[in-house]
Amino acid sequence: MKNAIEIRNLSKEFKGFTLNNISLELPSGCIMGLIGENGAGKSTIIKLIFNSIKRSGGSIEVLGCDNLDKDFEKVKNEIGVVLDEPCFPECVRLKDINAMMKSIYKNWSSDEFFAYCDKFGLPRDKRFKGFSKGMKMKTSIAVAMSHGARLLVLDEATSGLDPIIRDEILDVFNDFTRDENHSVLISSHIISDLEKICDYIAFIHKGSLRFCEEKDALLDKYLLIHCTDEDLKKLQHSQIVGYKRSRYETEALVKNGSLPSGIISEKPCIEDIMLFMSKESV
């Protein structure tokens, strides 16, 4: 089908925070990164996808099925999930986890699960309590990859892990999408992780969607400039996205276009775009 996830005008009201009119589309076969500061609403969106919380308005369709539909429970068989906290009881071992998930998922493959466990070097004899944070996360990932999922939803799955493990794990997600029917939605505040492998980036800021774009197109849209305060004033107001003054220079993110000569410019990275867009006023 066309889109793995289709979110239209999604909104949710809490006391003191509102998720406001979010519309996103994750085309099948793509990886979408959801970025934003802590508390921006990324985890809220993921909870809304699974109906852990009820939406105030809008619609969500996952793998072609409305998530309030009765059939959605069956569709969850094809969705692999990794949350930011490891979620198995501490007293169990890998074989217990295997037995548990076998009775829960329709297309569970014990062989695949143990293959991933071996690949990740997870100990078969230790109880989950004795696993390090990285090992716990890898267990959740092994589970997510072992039941024939077509869509992976990852909520801060790599936070708190060291760079070596993060790299291994990103490889796993990258390989998952070699099949064009497989899609990934990954939320993270470690943007460097997402920068390489994502096809789309969606930026959530204070409950609103600032942009959702193809990553390359996004990076082509802006330039990061280093200049003086006077130079900044020469630019069109509408061209400036955000700026930061320091003792020796002014740094600004501007829309790609003609610039007065003498201004040093470079290609921004996604983190730059996010930081400058978050600045309140110009």
Binding site: E73, K74, K76, I79, F88, E90, I104, Y105, K106
Partner: peptide, 24 residues
């Protein structure tokens, strides 16, 4: 005692994403 383990493991949030449903 078993519920205690469930509680500590945040299984409940995870189970919303599993094909079991609240009723199940």
């Amino acid at each position: 005692g078993m519920m205690e383990y469930n509680e500590r493991s945040k299984w409940e949030l995870y189970s919303d994403a599993l094909p079991v449903g609240r009723k199940g």
